[in-house]
Amino acid sequence: MKVIIINKEAWAGGLERLYDSFRLFGPVKQDEFHIFKELSKGELPDMNLLNTRLSAKSMVYPQSEKMFEFTLDENRDDHHMLKEIHKDYSPRAVIGIRPCDAKAFLLVKANFDSPEYKDPYWIKSYESTTLVGYACNNPSSTCFCTTAGCGPFHEQGLDLLLVDAWDHYFAKVITEKGENFLAAAGWSSEADSDTACDEIETMRQAAEAKITTRISTDKLKDKNTTELFEAPFWEDVAFACINCGTCTYLCPTCWCFDIQDETFGLSGIRMRNWDSCMYPLFTLHGSGHNPRDTKRQRIRQRFMHKLKYYVDKYEDGIQCVGCGRCISHCPVNIDIRKVCTLMNGFEP
């Protein structure tokens, strides 16, 4: 495994060089929290963070995204025809993405890039993106990544993993994309691989030891779906829920969207916006019937999807990476760890 040492004094200079070949995105502090933003030339990502308030999913899959444009002007030959919109898919890099958010892209990929369905917007965007991970030396108390198929130094989904070691970063090369990124930055001082890997391993263990909350997911797969669906605890779980979209919008693995047309005079666009299974509108039929009319049904859907349907369908663990955002920011303190415990331990 190739490891490059990036001296922190060479950090800004390297980023400066990267602007020539990449659009750079990184965490910046806005008000009281961090969000991912496109960095303007000379702007540095703020690497002093726990994690961003919103996940990195919008880097590939924006909350609102244009899909097509059209004209209603009947004097034009192409009226009422959807036309593809030209978009910027030039190389971009997301610097400082936490391993949980990177792993989440792989879970989301199962939906947007499957043998049956290919989502062109997501795929093009994802393929143009280099994910420069940032290992968590200090995970937060709501992190439970180690029992959600991930970890503070997890490499799956990343092209490069940066590890903060006081005066320098170790940059662990994971893919060719990562290698190219380093080359473009001009960071080339190779560390002795064994020593560096040992050092990173020690830091990994220290970080993992700081993660105190765990979930058990081992029995989810064997549960009977209908019994779990009918479980009595849903009423209690759902009571506090106000059916806002906070959990779904902050979640790195929630992928649902809604398609809308908007017209402005004679021109218009078709776009998609994140949607949330917490909203009654999500499942409202044209007939007026709503199969998920109550919040108990909606909240059950969210947890069943993440912790049961996904588990059964993809056989790749739960649809959650343990980032803990939904726990920290749920306005009414609904805690997925608690719900997972209820589901995993449920006996009818």
């Binding site: 924006p62 609102s64 995204e65 244009k66 908007e262 402005f264 666009i269 776009m271």
Partner: peptide, 8 residues
């Protein structure tokens, strides 16, 4: 007045 949608 919305003359276009200011979205990505």
């Amino acid at each position: 007045l919305k003359t276009e949608a200011r979205v990505a």
